[in-house]
Amino acid sequence: MRPDPVILAFDTSAAHCAAALLSGGQVVAEAWEPMEKGQAERLLPLCQEVMAQAGMGWGDLTALAVGTGPGNFTGVRIAVAAARGLALSLGVPAIGVTRLEALAHGLPRPLTVVEDARRGEVYVQEFDPDPGEARLSAVASLGVEGCAPDVVGSAAEAAAAVTGGRLLVQPLPLTHAMALIAAGRLDRPQPRPAPFYLRGPDAAPPADPPPVILP
């Protein structure tokens, strides 16, 4: 690991396009733009603008950090595919960081991250202090599941009412936390970033069975 890693982190897992540049242990430039669609068009120009703010370019990067979700399937793929392409051409590692890990970054543990997953469900992951298995659940069942009472995340308010714990807030922007987490992983080889869906692809086998084949 180089003494002063330069890490570009980006994320398009929800209705935003976000990037942050870490250098000298600090985030030296960042941007966050709310965006319902158009992340595919905006992501790389935004990254270039963020690097330009710090007088840097693609060739200065030591590593990439990319948000792998959970979140919008298409949005997650936009960032992950771009990160894999950049890693290939720049010859630097791309490190996947989940949204849940980023939300838990630097907060006191034990802690439960509870993110809204829509359809009445939440993404849940406990950190005690190491990360437990992330899963899809319902807020109402958090008490039964015996989660750590202190909570953070977009569904934390409802979750705190069930767990009776403190409602914590992640002070850092998502990509800021992702860059810091990735910096801590540079000392060992990392798998290629892969979308972290936590939800199946919503495909059902055909309802009509094939005909009986007679002898």
Partner: peptide
């Protein structure tokens, strides 16, 4: 299929811009 096309386009953009 847009999901696949988008993955290819983003990968290609990353490859082209970095190289």
């Amino acid at each position: 299929l847009i999901g696949g096309v988008l993955s290819g386009v983003m990968l290609a953009r990353g490859v082209a811009i970095g190289a």
